[in-house]
């Protein structure tokens, strides 16, 4: 039996990079997965390639898209146990010094990396807390970055928005612990993804982590955070303990 059978999970930014790897990994473990992305053609293509998933077209950075996205997620999955806020914006590319960053570009990074996850989480909190009340547990994973902690020059818009997202995760986690909704802020590391290529075009891909590996670690962390599933499955790898510990610490 799959560890995640009957688990209902949603992943934003689910048509490339880490998001796509997570859609595949969660589906492989038996979860019922909905994914969100902006480009209709890509959403249709990924949904076709993964027949048991639900593709939803929407932009988490747009306020008007949030409720239609939330409606489709909870409607198609019949509720929700796990939300992965993965969709991210780098801010201006090529990367710029903060002082050279246009205010509008900074706002766009905040909209995608901070306000979007805030709005979507808030809209889905009813479904997540219902899952927790029913004893299934509920987890929100906010995909973080070492740029949320370290001050890397030229990563200002991205780093500042990810730092705020990380702190928001910690506050949500404190406030909603009694409701049974857990928040994990997870840093997948430098991966060979389209986002990384945009940020560091001349990076040597062979030195980068594969998104599939990061997806396994995140899925392990989710598994470790869901009491019902953690009780069912005895698979507790070192990676899952590490990731969960980081989630609690952040």
């Amino acid at each position: 039996m799959h560890a995640f059978s009957s688990l209902r999970a949603a992943v934003t930014g689910g048509t490339s990079g880490l998001g796509l790897a997570l859609v595949r990994e969660l589906t492989r473990r038996g979860a019922h997965v909905a994914f969100v992305a902006r480009t209709p053609e890509r959403v249709q293509q990924i949904a076709r390639e993964h027949p048991h998933t639900h593709g939803i077209v929407g932009d988490v950075a747009r306020k008007e898209d949030i409720y239609p996205i939330a409606l489709q997620i909870t409607g198609e999955l019949d509720g929700l146990d796990v939300l992965v806020n993965n969709a991210s914006s780098l801010g201006p590319t090529p990367l710029r010094l903060l002082a050279d960053t246009d205010c509008e570009d900074f706002e766009r990074a905040l909209a995608a990396n901070l306000l979007g996850p805030f709005r979507l989480t808030k809209a889905l909190l009813g479904a997540l807390s219902a899952s927790a009340r029913e004893g299934r547990g509920a987890v929100v994973v906010n995909v973080s970055s070492d740029a949320a902690i370290n001050a890397y020059p030229t990563w200002g818009a991205y780093g500042a928005s990810k730092a705020a997202l990380r702190h928001m995760s910690a506050i949500w986690n404190e406030e909603l612990a009694a409701e049974g909704v857990r928040f994990l802020s997870l840093d997948p590391g430098d991966m060979d993804t389209p986002l990384h290529a945009l940020a560091v075009p001349d990076a040597d891909a062979t030195t980068l982590k594969q998104p599939e590996q990061a997806a396994v670690e995140i899925a392990d962390a989710i598994e470790a955070s869901l009491p019902a599933i953690a009780g069912l499955s005895r698979r507790s790898s070192a990676a899952s303990s590490r990731a969960a510990a980081e989630g609690r610490a952040s």
Binding site: T74, G75, A123, G126, S129, A130
Partner: peptide, 14 residues
């Protein structure tokens, strides 16, 4: 009305 006007804070399955 927008959906956020009519969804309760505990709104789950639509």
């Amino acid at each position: 009305l927008a959906l956020w006007d009519v969804w309760t804070v505990i709104a789950g399955r639509p």
